[in-house]
């Protein structure tokens, strides 16, 4: 199977994020997605970029309530993912070009993917 195109992941410190992203933008990469993962008490944030099907990830590891800068000044379309990050995970992102201030995705439970959320099963039906 040839599904496995190259996927590289580089860990970056939050203060280096902007520089790295600018470098990728200058290198002709497009922003594919920003996604967060709960790794037990902390977040792992993946900034994924692609050029000619070469996949590169910048990976941040953050504690809860750590502010991160918005990359929407570099990639205009990043606001979608950054608002999503804020609304689902409760990660404060500073300086988004179109900041919905928590109204992009409204959920019954505030920050449903937050590492500080109560318990696992909060189904209102069960």
């Amino acid at each position: 199977m040839t599904v496995n195109a190259e996927q590289t992941t580089i860990s970056v410190a939050p203060e280096d994020l902007m520089r790295e992203v600018e470098g990728l933008q200058a290198g002709g990469y497009r922003l594919v997605q920003i996604g967060c993962t709960d790794i037990g008490g902390a977040y792992e944030v993946n900034y994924s970029f692609d050029r000619d099907y070469q996949y590169r990830n910048l990976r941040l590891t953050l504690g809860p309530d750590t502010e991160i800068p918005s990359i929407s000044g570099i990639y205009w379309g990043a606001f979608v993912y950054e608002n999503e990050m804020h609304d689902l995970f409760g990660i404060p992102v500073v300086g988004i070009n179109i900041d919905f201030k928590g109204t992009f995705i409204k959920t019954a439970e505030k920050y449903p993917f937050s590492v500080t959320r109560r318990g696992g099963d909060q189904c209102r039906n069960a």
Partner: peptide
């Protein structure tokens, strides 16, 4: 009933 999504946090059911 909410079906397959019944247990999702955002579904009233």
């Amino acid at each position: 009933t909410g079906g397959i999504f019944r247990e999702c946090y955002n579904i009233a059911g």
